[in-house]
């Protein structure tokens, strides 16, 4: 099994095309914390023997934050160029670890002429576990550990995906403790709608603090999420409550990889 991660261009030069494109996204590419998730998910794909590739420098932001900020010009510019790139490689299937990229590729690109089968990485992880393509050892690091799961808005309420990530957590043998506001009632981390790129409007407190307090109140020692922005927000919130030494925040891919390495050395 090769450890090299190829771009579509590199594979195309060899006349190959992968079964799935891994859409990395801006956070997954540039944010130090999210890069670790990108690497973890890549390693899982390799362990499962899935042929995949990334776009590398040919990938651009999907345009989600620009569109939600109200800047349709920039959204269209990025989206139309991305669609052109994807068309150039004849991409049919995309997986991404970012629910914002997921939503835009899946729900917004069709109106601009881009039609793909798009899945979120937690859905693929669930499939790989269910199909036995990756095996997790029960009774590992997370056995009996209290984990709480934060539904991102763009995966959960907006796209109705609640069970895939929870199935993955079940496979980890962890003790899942739900927050009071979960699934359709999940509370936003505060980053969506381009809030990630601006200061909060005046108010009593930051949204991520409110959410971190709720996560901490479950008594869980791990906060699992499925979104690079939620990950940052939850981590910052927990830090602000000075609990970063007791409570860890992870993406589901990191949790799965952690288990994979223990069982498949």
């Amino acid at each position: 099994m090769s450890n090299t991660i190829y771009t579509m261009a590199e594979l195309a030069a060899e006349g190959r095309s992968p079964e799935i494109l891994f859409w990395v996204g801006c956070a997954g590419s540039y944010d130090a914390r999210a890069q670790r998730v990108t690497l973890a998910f890549s390693k899982i794909l390799q362990a499962a023997g899935i042929e995949f590739a990334i776009l590398g420098n040919e990938e651009q932001c999907t345009g989600d934050p620009a569109r939600r900020a109200g800047n349709e010009f920039i959204f269209q510019m990025l989206a139309l160029q991305n669609i052109q790139t994807l068309e150039g490689y004849g991409v049919k299937k995309i997986v991404t670890a970012c629910p914002h990229c997921f939503n835009t590729l899946k729900n917004e690109y069709p109106a601009l002429g881009g039609h793909y089968e798009v899945i979120h990485h937690t859905q693929l992880l669930q499939q790989l576990i269910a199909d036995g393509r990756i095996r997790l050892q029960g009774g590992g690091d997370f056995k009996g550990k209290k984990i709480t799961y934060h539904d991102s808005c763009y995966l959960g309420r907006i796209n109705g995906i609640y069970e895939a990530p929870r199935d993955v957590l079940k496979a980890l043998d962890a003790d899942l403790i739900e927050m009071k506001r979960c699934k359709t009632n999940g509370l936003c981390c505060g980053a969506g709608g381009a809030q990630m790129w601006k200061e909060d409007e005046p108010g009593k407190q930051r949204i991520n603090i409110e959410r971190a307090e709720e996560a901490l109140s479950t008594g869980a020692t791990v906060v699992a999420s499925n979104c690079p922005f939620c990950l940052t927000m939850m981590q910052d919130g927990i830090k602000a409550k000075e609990k970063q030494d007791e409570v860890m925040t992870f993406d589901l891919a990191e949790l799965v990889l952690n288990h994979l390495e223990k069982t498949n050395p």
Binding site: I5, T7, V24, C26, A27, G28, S29, Y30, D31, Q35, T38, L39, S42, I54, G56, N57, E59, Q60, C61, G63, P65, A66, A69, G70, N71, I74, M77, L78, Q81, A194, W197, K198, E199
Partner: peptide, 29 residues
């Protein structure tokens, strides 16, 4: 609109990324 969004718009327009970074997009690999 919020002035905080201007650098984001500029970065998206000029480098195709939500953050202006001096490194390659696939530096992580």
């Amino acid at each position: 609109g919020p002035s905080d969004w201007l650098p984001m718009f500029n970065s998206m327009e000029n480098s195709g990324s939500a953050w202006a970074m001096a490194v390659d997009r696939d530096q992580w690999r």
